[in-house]
Each structure stands twice: as C-alpha cells, then as structure tokens.
C-alpha cells in the first residue's frame, strides 16, 4: 500500500495529458457536434513541430511551444476549411469518417517525410526526481501538470470573459440562435478547430521530451477519448476529472490487478460510468422537444 501515493501522483501526471487531449475533443464536439478522431494526430503534429523548431531551427523550447501552438492552430483551421466545412450538411457519420481519414492522412504524411524513426527533444526542466514526502516526481512532469492547470484556467477565463469565448459558447448552445445574433458560425467553427488543434499540439510538445517522438504518439487519443466520455463529453471540468481518473486508475489497476490489465481498466471504468450515469460524470441530459 505504500506505493499508492506514488501511483496516484504518477497517474495524475499521465492523466493531465489525457485531460489536455480530452479538452480538445470536448471543445470541438461542443461547438460542432463532431467527434474528432484526428485529435491524436494533433498531438503528433505538435510533437514534430516542436522537434523541427528545436533541433532543425535551433529555437529555445519556450519559443518552440509558442510556435507549436500557432502552427497547430493553423493546421486545425486549414483542415477544417478543406476537409470538414464541405461536409457541414452531411450526416454526422460521414464527418466522423472524415476525421478518421484526416488522422490517417496526417500520420502517413509524416511517415513519408520522416519515417517512423523516433526522435527526441530536450525539455528545459530536469528529469532528476525530487522527493515530496514519500513521492518522487521530476520537475519536467511537475511543469507539465502546472502547464495543463494554467491552460485550463486560461480557457475558463477565455470562455467566461472574452467576446470570442462567449460567441463559442453561444454557438455550442444553438448554432441557429448564434447566427441570428450576428455570430459567424463557420468562423466560430474554424476558430474552435484551431483551438482544439492547438491544445493537441501543446500536449505533443509537452510529452515529447519524456517519451520521444514518433508517428504513434497519436495513440494517446484512446485514453483521451475515454476521459472525455467519462467526463460527459460536453464538459471541460469533466474532461479534466476524466483524464486524471483514467491516469490514476490505469496505474492502480496495473499494480493491484495485473500489468496486462492496465489498459483495460479505463474501458471498465467507461462502461461502468455509462451504465450508472449515461451522460458521464459531468454531462447534461440531452432533451429534445417533440
């Protein structure tokens, strides 16, 4: 049992990245009703952009992070304009397939250029663990957790106080009403995709120094997706709680059940949550007028 505090802290560290991916999924889903299965590839794109900035252009890590945010946002806007906007009036299933296709295209385009060879970048924080009570954690993992917390706080402020954030919330509630209020819905869609992609890119550049960079980084979509569903899929706090829950339960399940069972644990949680709370932990029931 003495392992439990360490397992929880390590789980929170892993879960904070799942949360970042989940928030990207939630933002896009709330605004556009699309589940973006290419969100994992946003993570990959961010990691590769970071690698390009740092190793090819010799830029400092923090400059790279800013450029990755901007570059990922741009990629998100371009993908939305080229791949999703023409399908705006198509059935949701068509658009979901389009996101899967976009993910595959991005992954294979990266492979064409750089193959699957792993790469790495150096972060700015130490990888030497520090002891806090009975728990060890590295400054670079603490920095990631702090960054995720900061991003969440900024998002809350953005949605509550900025004009654009309010317009996004309005569009998420009712596209028709938002349009009648003079909000450009396609414009909001574009900016939402940019924001979602930027969050994915941020996750990529944050995780890259810890786990290296290859085209399979997008696999983080799976725990991110589970986190979003557990959290209710429409709730940013839900995505955060879901991400941390998945990270912690993976760790506890891996030790106290079996390492083979580790990746099954989140799905067990997912099914359990959906059976007890079909709308997830923080989701609101969908009501339709008949």
């Amino acid at each position: 049992m003495e392992l439990v505090p360490q397992l929880i802290v390590s789980g929170i560290a892993a879960g904070s990245l799942y949360a970042l991916v989940a928030i990207g999924l939630v933002l896009i889903y709330k605004a556009t009703d699309i589940v973006n299965f290419a969100q994992g590839e946003s993570v990959t794109v961010g990691a590769y952009m970071g690698w390009l900035c740092i190793t090819q252009f010799r830029l400092p890590y923090f400059v790279a992070v800013v450029l990755v945010l901007a570059g990922s946002a741009l990629v998100g806007m371009i993908v939305e304009r080229v791949a999703y906007r023409p399908l705006l009036k198509s059935p949701p299933f068509t658009v979901i397939l389009a996101t899967l296709a976009v993910g595959l295209i991005i992954k294979n385009a990266i492979r064409l250029v750089w193959q699957d060879t792993p790469r790495t970048i150096s972060g700015v924080f130490s990888a030497e663990p520090i002891e806090i009570g009975s728990v060890l954690i590295t400054p670079e993992r603490l920095a990631i957790m702090f960054t995720v917390a900061l991003v969440v706080a900024l998002l809350v402020l953005f949605f509550r106080f900025s004009k654009l954030g309010k317009a996004m919330r309005a569009t998420a509630q009712s596209q028709e009403a938002a349009s009648l209020m003079g909000i450009s819905v396609p414009g909001i869609f574009s900016k939402t995709w940019a924001l979602g992609s930027a969050l994915g890119g941020l996750a990529g550049v944050l995780i890259a120094p810890l786990v290296g960079i290859n085209t399979e980084l997008g696999a983080v979509l799976v725990p991110g997706f589970v986190a979003a569903v557990v959290g209710g899929f429409t709730s940013i706090p839900g995505a955060i709680v879901g991400g941390i829950l998945v990270g912690v339960l993976e760790n506890l399940g891996g030790v106290f059940i079996s390492s083979s069972f580790k990746q099954v644990v989140p799905f067990v949680v997912l099914i359990t949550v959906l059976m007890v709370l079909p709308t997830g932990l923080f989701g609101k029931p969908l009501r339709k007028a008949v």
Binding site: Q6, G11, N251
Partner: peptide, 20 residues
C-alpha cells in the same frame, strides 16, 4: 513479471511494481 503494450507511454505502474 510486468507486461507492457506497443505504443504505451506511461510505465509507472509496471516500474513501481518492479521497484517494490
């Protein structure tokens, strides 16, 4: 004996079991 899957990025549960 601890197992991990292709593509896995976090190994803390396996490593902590090893450490213990």
């Amino acid at each position: 004996r601890q197992r991990y899957n292709p593509g896995e990025t976090d190994f803390s549960s396996q490593l902590l079991a090893v450490k213990q």
